[in-house]
Amino acid sequence: MAATLNPWPTTRQGAKDHSVTTLQFLLLAHGQTVTVDGVFGAQTGDAVRAFQWAKNLPDNGVVCPRTWEALIVEVRPGAQGSAVRGVQHEFPTSEDGVYGPETERAVRSFQQDAAILVDGVVGRTTWQALVGGVQAAPLQQAA
């Protein structure tokens, strides 16, 4: 049974949840200047607005589903950089920015547990599951 993904969260100034750190790593991957501290403060807001403006999105500083979709960087084995750190931040692995065997195992295990395609590639569906979460499948009752 396929997973039901939660919607992308709406993330805005003042937020301090796990999605903010992932957002900050993705902003870095797109060349924005931001400190990865897990706090959506003025610097993160400025970086979000600059990113939105560059992508012809409403530059209001609110990270809505359209902004999340634009921020996605496909991450696969062998990749390096801030987007990989964003993936690694979601797991109890080292955050060295290198997509090696440890990261691949964590991603594949997550994909399996979330009932999404297990391919080791962090694309749109896996990013959405990481950031927004996955709804538990309802238990089927015996007839």
Rank of each mutant, 00 (worst) to 15 (best):
M1Y: 08
T4H: 09
L5D: 00
L5F: 01
N6Y: 05
P7E: 11
W8K: 06
P9W: 07
T10L: 14
T11P: 01
R12E: 15
Q13Y: 12
G14I: 00
A15S: 13
A15Y: 12
K16V: 15
T22D: 14
T22A: 04
T22L: 11
L23H: 03
L26W: 03
L27M: 04
L27E: 03
L27R: 08
L28A: 05
H30E: 07
G31Y: 09
Q32T: 01
T33Y: 11
T33L: 12
T33R: 14
T35P: 05
T35L: 08
T35A: 12
V36M: 08
V36A: 09
V36C: 12
V36N: 01
D37N: 11
G38L: 08
G38P: 06
G38S: 03
G38N: 02
V39Y: 13
F40V: 00
F40D: 01
T44R: 00
T44D: 10
G45S: 13
G45C: 08
G45I: 03
D46T: 14
A47P: 05
V48Q: 02
V48G: 02
R49P: 05
R49T: 01
F51D: 01
F51S: 02
Q52S: 09
K55T: 04
L57P: 10
L57I: 09
G61L: 06
C64W: 12
R66M: 04
T67M: 03
W68Y: 04
W68I: 05
W68R: 00
E69I: 10
A70E: 07
A70Y: 03
A70H: 03
I72P: 07
I72N: 03
V73N: 02
V73D: 02
E74N: 13
P77E: 07
G81D: 03
A83F: 11
A83V: 05
A83M: 10
V84T: 07
R85I: 07
R85Y: 09
R85Q: 15
V87Q: 03
H89N: 12
P92K: 11
T93H: 10
E95L: 14
E95F: 11
D96T: 15
D96W: 08
V98F: 13
Y99Q: 02
E104T: 11
R105P: 06
A106C: 13
V107F: 10
V107H: 11
V107D: 13
R108T: 13
R108D: 10
R108W: 02
Q111K: 09
A114I: 01
A115N: 14
A115I: 13
I116G: 04
D119I: 08
G120R: 08
G120T: 06
G120C: 04
V122F: 03
T125D: 14
G133A: 10
V134R: 02
V134P: 03
A137W: 15
L139F: 14
Q140D: 07
A142L: 14
A142Q: 09
A143N: 09
